[in-house]
Lab assay of single mutants.
Amino acid sequence: PQVPQCKALYAYDAQDTDELSFNANDIIDIIKEDPSGWWTGRLRGKQGLFPNNYVTKI
């Protein structure tokens, strides 16, 4: 099955070790969508939390 993905609308710099940094237009694999607004994703071999208001699902 296809892994859900999202595209970064803005760059995000991780504020903690469990967060994921990314650049605008990066494509992130979505591991888990949480109602809190912090999703778990994977990018370039690293997994971490990121704010879903920085991305749009594709």
Rank of each mutant, 00 (worst) to 15 (best):
Q2W: 11
P51Y: 05
T40G: 03
K46E: 09
D13A: 10
T40C: 10
D13H: 10
N25M: 10
L20Q: 00
G45A: 06
F22V: 04
L9H: 05
Q47N: 04
T17N: 05
E19F: 11
D34L: 06
Q5T: 14
C6G: 14
I58D: 12
A8R: 01
D34Y: 07
D16F: 09
P35R: 11
G41K: 00
V55F: 03
P35E: 14
D18I: 09
T56I: 07
D16S: 12
Q47S: 10
K46A: 12
L20T: 00
E19Y: 15
K46R: 14
L49V: 14
N23V: 13
R42G: 11
S36I: 02
L49K: 15
G37R: 03
D34S: 11
P51H: 07
P51F: 06
D26H: 00
C6Y: 06
D13Y: 08
R44D: 14
F50S: 03
N23K: 14
D18M: 12
D16M: 11
A11T: 08
Q2G: 11
D18W: 08
Y10H: 10
L20R: 01
P1G: 08
C6M: 09
I58G: 04
Q15M: 13
N52T: 12
D29R: 05
N23T: 14
N23W: 05
G41C: 02
P35F: 06
Y54I: 06
L20A: 01
L43F: 14
V3I: 10
R42I: 05
R42M: 05
N53H: 14
I31W: 04
N52A: 15
G48Q: 01
Q2K: 12
Q15D: 10
N25Y: 04
N52H: 12
A11R: 15
K7L: 11
G45Y: 02
Q5H: 08
R44H: 08
T56Y: 09
I27R: 05
Y54G: 03
E19I: 04
A8G: 02
R42S: 09
D29P: 00
N53K: 12
P35N: 11
Y12W: 10
K32N: 14
K32M: 11
D18K: 11
G37C: 03
Y54A: 13
L20G: 00
K57P: 08
D16Q: 08
G45E: 13
K57E: 07
R44W: 04
L49A: 08
A24P: 15
P35S: 14
G48W: 03
P35Q: 14
Q47H: 10
D16V: 09
Q47L: 09
D13W: 05
L20P: 00
D26R: 00
L20M: 08
Y54T: 09
Y54Q: 05
T17L: 08
Q5L: 10
G48V: 02
T56W: 11
T17A: 15
Y54E: 00
T40Y: 12
K32Q: 10
D26T: 03
N25E: 11
P35G: 14
D29C: 06
S21N: 09
S21Y: 02
N52Y: 08
S36F: 07
A14C: 07
A24S: 11
N23Y: 10
T40S: 12
G48S: 01
T17S: 12
N52S: 15
Q5S: 12
I58A: 07
Q15I: 09
D16Y: 11
A8W: 00
F22H: 02
T17I: 14
D13Q: 14
I30M: 04
V55N: 03
R44K: 09
K7E: 07
N23R: 14
G48L: 05
S21E: 07
A14M: 05
P1N: 15
L49R: 15
N25I: 01
D18P: 15
P1D: 10
I30T: 02
R44F: 11
Q47G: 04
S36D: 13
D29F: 05
S21T: 13
N25R: 10
K7H: 11
G41W: 00
N53A: 10
G45C: 06
L9T: 04
D16N: 13
F50V: 08
I58L: 11
I30S: 00
N25K: 08
A11G: 09
T17W: 11
I31R: 03
N52V: 12
I30F: 02
G41R: 01
F50Y: 01
N25C: 11
N23S: 14
K7Q: 07
A8K: 01
S36A: 11
P1H: 15
Q2A: 11
Q2F: 03
K57Q: 06
S36T: 12
N52G: 15
L20W: 00
N25G: 13
Q2S: 08
W39A: 05
W39C: 06
Q47P: 06
Y54M: 10
E33P: 02
D26Y: 02
W39V: 05
T17C: 11
L43V: 12
D34M: 06
F50G: 01
A14K: 09
G37P: 04
R42K: 15
D34H: 07
F50P: 01
K32E: 14
E19P: 01
I30Q: 01
A8T: 04
E19K: 10
G37A: 03
Q47V: 15
I30W: 00
Y12R: 11
I31M: 13
L20H: 00
K46T: 10
A14R: 05
K57G: 05
A11D: 15
K57I: 03
A24F: 11
C6K: 00
Q15K: 09
N52K: 07
P51E: 03
D26F: 02
A8S: 03
K46N: 13
D34G: 11
E19H: 15
P51D: 11
S21Q: 06
G48N: 03
G37I: 04
Y54V: 10
A14H: 02
I58R: 06
Q15G: 10
